[in-house]
């Protein structure tokens, strides 16, 4: 595989961007990554983005966001209706072909105008599941209850994960739920969908994330310590409730194995778990041990920008590798109910 690295990453996230459009959320981040690398849009070989029309409430919503990139003269560009982590994968593939040396990846989500927990119901099997309108928290709760009742995880462990998120998020400028990192505080948070408390569910957020990828020498020229992508893989599980084991994250394990997560010590892991019990499942699937710092940013629990939370995990891990906080990191992104689809990206510093 060709050596490709993340050479710049930026993000903005807050509970709601009430007075900015998606384009306006992104503009300062584009400016930041361009300043960080000295690369202009005309230097970029391929641009790829990820977003959702259902989230925005309008068809072809990504067409408007293209305006933020500066798409003239025309650019080589594509879009996935997926979390931006998969846009990054598509860009990485293009770089592997060897005809371009740089790529710009972005994604964004503004769920504050709608009700995300309901919007996500439209993602389910339209004939058998969606008509029942199970909301996203209820689905998470079903899985959490199964895990608790079968001793896959304990209530204390879930609380511990929620406390960890609040603790780590305290030092993160992008986290929207932070501080009060005590067991008592978390245990006092209201039950949203029994057995899930508010703190077991990711804090909703609006935001955007932008990453620049570069290959070989160009990466070294524009970044002091690029985060080299050593493995990037994604897999999906079956969708049907009856067609999968909800007590494990099988496709995450498959992707992690293919990406070589277990080949060496992992210093940092950024896992995209929309619920505490799912963060636990992911740690198991990826074989994370105590020697790894999990979600130093606070993770998706501390701020969950739909369609960008996965790309943000990659950005968080890459930024830490570039800053020298670790030599080897893994980032994970998920999509669909019960961690149906998963992407794993392993990065290393020089």
């Amino acid at each position: 595989m060709r050596d490709v690295a993340i050479v710049a990453a930026g993000q903005r996230q807050q509970a709601a961007f009430t007075d900015e459009t998606e384009v306006q959320i992104l503009l300062p981040i584009f400016e930041q990554v361009r300043n960080d690398t000295g690369l202009e849009q005309s230097d970029i070989g391929f641009t790829c983005s990820g977003s959702s029309d259902f989230l925005a409430g309008s068809a072809f919503s990504f067409v408007g966001t293209l305006e933020g990139v500066g798409a003239y003269p025309p650019i080589c560009e594509s879009h996935v209706e997926m979390d931006g982590a998969w846009a990054l994968y598509e860009a990485w593939v293009k770089l592997q072909i060897g005809e371009i040396d740089t790529a710009l990846v972005y994604s964004y989500g503004k769920s504050s105008p709608g009700s995300l927990r309901d919007v996500l119901s439209t993602q389910l099997d339209p004939y058998y599941l969606a008509p029942l309108w199970p909301d996203a928290f209820a689905l998470g709760a079903l899985q959490a209850r199964m895990m608790l009742e079968q001793d896959i995880v304990s209530r204390d462990r879930l609380t511990e994960i929620a406390v960890r998120s609040r603790d780590h998020a305290s030092s993160s400028p992008h986290a929207v739920r932070k501080g009060d990192a005590t067991t008592d505080f978390v245990e006092a948070s209201p039950v949203i969908a029994d057995p899930l408390r508010a703190d077991d569910c990711a804090a909703g957020a609006d935001g955007g994330c932008v990453i620049i990828l570069a290959a070989g020498d160009i990466a070294k020229n524009v970044c002091d310590r690029p985060a080299w992508i050593r493995g990037i893989e994604h897999r999906t599980d079956a969708h049907s409730l009856a067609g999968r084991d909800l007590l494990s994250a099988q496709s995450a394990a498959l992707a992690a194995n293919a990406a070589g997560v277990g080949d060496d010590k992992i210093d940092i892991a950024e896992l995209h778990g929309p619920f505490t019990h799912q963060e636990h499942l992911l740690e198991t699937a990826l074989g994370i041990t105590d020697e790894t710092i999990v979600n130093p940013s606070g993770g998706a629990l501390a701020g969950h920008t739909m369609m960008a939370a996965g790309l943000m995990r990659i950005a968080e891990a890459a930024t830490r590798v570039s800053a020298g906080a670790g030599d080897r990191a893994v980032a994970h992104a998920t999509s669909g109910p019960w961690l149906q689809q998963n992407l794993v990206c392993v990065m290393e510093g020089d």
Binding site: D19, G57, P113, S115, T122, Y127
Partner: peptide, 19 residues
């Protein structure tokens, strides 16, 4: 066939430039 009505409400706030 089955009919599954979907109703979703979005409350938009105008951006500064739109205001």
């Amino acid at each position: 066939s089955i009919r599954t009505p979907i109703r979703m409400t979005y409350d938009y706030i105008p951006s500064s430039s739109a205001i």
